[in-house]
Computed example of a mutant assay.
Amino acid sequence: MNDEALLRYSRQIMLEPIEIAGQERLLASHALVIGAGGLGSPVALYLAAAGVGRLTLADADVVELSNLQRQIAHGMDDLGRNKAASAREAALALNPDCRVEVLDAHLDGETLAAAVAESDVVIDCTDRFSSRYAINRASLAAGKPLISGAAIRFSGQLAVFDPRDAESPCYACLYPPGEAGEADDALRCAENGVVAPLVGVIGTFQALEAVKLLSGAGTPHRGLSTFDGLRGEWRHFKVPRDPACAACRSR
């Protein structure tokens, strides 16, 4: 790191769990952020600001006026633009030294597998069960940790799944396909609404877990954390690995 970088990241470097070595690990790391909307906006901005050296932002959607209530990486001038491209511009405005790449198509199959394999951590900021299951399968296949977040109405949740840990569950252990149900893809912000700051609470939590995993600081989150925004209450649940899980039982 040069003098400018030392000054930029000085408030993190002075933290004992991070220090110089942890910051250098961040600068050498690569995070894949799938979804550049409500959750992906704070994730992208905070990871760029924190010094993650390479970000890949994936989103096929374009910015609409109704997004601006909560998707803070975008502004009025971005209406009609691809969300990943818009978020890239916002991230670079915070930290021009961050390498930010854009994938402006829906990731699936080989393209998803390749993007996950190139990363050090995957942050799922999507809002469809079908996408979450696909990302989970790709994370398991590549052996990459997955940070999953969700937010709807006044409720949010976060879980971290790490296939490098033999005891760690996967997303399908938590929500077995057929029980959560791809039909529940209808539970999206567009159909049900979401209070604006909630996505910031969950997205920032996702970014924090990514910084911890990439820098080596602290202990990664375990289990499932849920947040009730109307009551201002967090709850934490243990989530054991399901030995019969169709997605990860061969691990």
Score class of each variant (00 low, 15 high):
residue 164 R to Y: 05
residue 30 H to F: 07
residue 220 P to V: 07
residue 230 L to A: 13
residue 156 G to F: 01
residue 250 S to K: 15
residue 201 V to G: 05
residue 90 A to S: 07
residue 106 H to R: 15
residue 193 G to H: 00
residue 40 G to E: 00
residue 189 C to N: 10
residue 210 A to R: 09
residue 237 F to G: 05
residue 129 F to C: 13
residue 72 I to V: 00
residue 167 E to S: 12
residue 233 E to I: 15
residue 227 F to P: 11
residue 212 K to M: 07
residue 197 P to N: 09
residue 211 V to E: 09
residue 18 I to W: 01
residue 121 V to F: 01
residue 230 L to P: 05
residue 24 E to T: 08
residue 69 Q to T: 03
residue 163 P to G: 06
residue 183 A to Y: 14
residue 223 G to T: 10
residue 219 T to P: 09
residue 63 V to Y: 11
residue 241 R to T: 06
residue 143 G to R: 01
residue 3 D to I: 14
residue 80 G to K: 03
residue 241 R to L: 03
residue 139 S to T: 07
residue 23 Q to P: 12
residue 29 S to L: 02
residue 87 A to S: 03
residue 20 I to A: 10
residue 38 G to I: 11
residue 166 A to D: 10
residue 62 V to I: 14
residue 60 A to Y: 12
residue 209 E to H: 08
residue 162 D to M: 06
residue 156 G to V: 03
residue 58 A to P: 07
residue 181 G to L: 03
residue 40 G to L: 11
residue 83 K to Y: 08
residue 44 A to R: 02
residue 229 G to C: 08
residue 36 A to K: 11
residue 247 A to S: 14
residue 52 V to Y: 01
residue 132 R to T: 04
residue 48 A to P: 03
residue 4 E to Q: 14
residue 64 E to D: 06
residue 85 A to E: 11
residue 33 V to G: 09
residue 27 L to F: 07
residue 21 A to Q: 15
residue 71 Q to D: 13
residue 204 T to D: 10
residue 206 Q to K: 10
